[in-house]
Design a protein around this nucleic acid. Structure first.
Lengths: 133, 133
DNA sequence: CTACGAAGTAGAGCCGACTCTAGGTCAAGC
DNA sequence: GCTTGACCTAGAGTCGGCTCTACTTCGTAG
């Protein structure tokens, strides 16, 4: 086992819920802010920062940001100071998309809730009749 | 053009936002409640009910219900009265998933909003400094 | 009578995001 | 010294949901 600082890919998989495959895939896709350090035998050693960054990427993915756009954002961060406005733009755009997505979902939810209550009433009325007999 | 009742596939595509390809695909996948009537030359003629059903399917898809599950639901409806409890189950399950999805999205939204405000403040502070010079 | 546009069918292709396979290295434990 | 298990790489495969292709058939307009 590695010493107390530095996590193996398996440990990161456990902590993030991603598969080791997905972790390697993300790395290949260039969405890790800084190159992952390698330990003996060429094994990946993740820092806590790597973990934190990954967790943010997971949030972005969960909310539907495509991998290539996460890479664009990551690239900006990697390039360092001076491009904060561009980073902000990406985030704001995504924020807008998430907002729309939530509105849509809410609309769907309203419809579903309506249908559920209609069916529930119907089912209840059938039950009541059965009991009454 | 078809007479006032009955829509062509193109008209349905327009009204639903789906492509004609997608409409044929949905039909092949069996997610139309009732078989689409055919007009002269074997062309599809959609009724207003078909349209309404499609719109509901679109809501279910938008909220992430997989096509096979929409089919399961559709099959129940096609089979007619007596299986309302099963329909209700499908809807309730989906409702739960949508609820979870919205909670997740909200979590992501909170993170993004936080990051946006941090970057916004930073960008503003840079601007202020530039103006002050 | 020719051309066009909108429809039809069957089936292949595409895209994104993983997921898995094959074959290999290495350290620890029996 | 052999097995096991976690890791490595490169690249192939999968899956869902369309999307597109190829080719045909109509009905109307020029």
């Amino acid at each position: 086992m590695l010493d107390h600082m530095g996590l193996s890919i398996g440990q990161v998989a456990e902590r993030t819920g991603l598969s080791v495959h997905a972790l390697r895939f993300y790395e290949k896709e260039g969405i890790l802010a800084h190159q992952v350090h390698r330990g003996p035998g060429g094994r990946r050693v993740y820092t806590d920062q790597d973990l934190a960054w990954l967790k943010m990427c997971i949030m972005l993915r969960m909310s539907g940001m495509p991998v290539p756009e996460i890479r664009r954002y990551t690239d900006l961060v990697r390039q360092g100071d001076g491009n904060e406005l561009q980073r902000l733009d990406i985030l704001k755009e995504h924020q807008e998309r998430v907002r729309e997505q939530m509105a849509q979902l809410q609309e769907c939810m309203d419809l579903i809730t309506h249908k559920v209550s209609v069916y529930q009433d119907y089912v209840n009325s059938i039950d009541a009749r059965a009991v009454g007999q």
